[in-house]
Amino acid sequence: MSEEKKEEEKALPDGARGAGEAQTPPVDPEREAKLKAAAEARAARAAAKEKADKEAAEAAPPEPKPPSPKQPELERIVELLKRDVSEEAVEDAYVNELNGDMPTVVVRNAHWRPAAELLKRHEELSFRYLRNVSGVDYETHMEVVYHMVSLGTKREAAIKVKTEREGASVYSATPVWATAGWNEREIFDLLGIDFPGHPDLRRIMMPDDWVGHPLRKDYEPLDSEV
């Protein structure tokens, strides 16, 4: 690639990069054959899997499961949130069977701050220990997950707050749990979710002049050589 072309490519905005490389490569018969063989193998595997799935579905008709022992815990959290915060505070609630029936509640963003206060301070729940905060980019939306536990009763809960991808923003939980501080900074840095109410929201892992948020699914590095 000529020096000039390189310059030009750097000047282009993110999405436009690579558009200049549309020349067709010379056809390599060996490579073509390999590609074809790989495609055939893929198709065969997919067909086999489909067949196996179908058989499995026929063999085991789903049985109604008994309700989880943690169902009452979940219902109590939802009840309290609805009663003391707002009727609309809870978007969704379920037990996460994969994770030892962890009670999981999706709280609406607008009600998240008072909900956080309630979860921590309510005598019955007393989720005083916030053990983990994760951010997830689901491509359709973003999600912040707060895993908390009550040290007295050892009950756990996962609280999720959903937000749009564009202008993602979730009310900060740092004024409620100090431990959320750096965790939220990390999510801000790597996923680009804003946390209004956070006392010190800056990048924490990446340099201050970094462009973009690396853990977003559509992240493209500004300088492809880094």
């Binding site: 994969l98 962890m102 053990r131 983990n132 895993h147 996962a158």
Partner: peptide, 22 residues
């Protein structure tokens, strides 16, 4: 792993190390 998520935690020498998989 099946679709879904899990958070597990264990006691490392430094404290609670957890892993959240989606």
């Amino acid at each position: 792993p099946p679709a879904g998520e899990v958070y597990v935690r264990i006691e490392s020498p430094r404290g609670e190390i957890g892993c959240h998989i989606v």
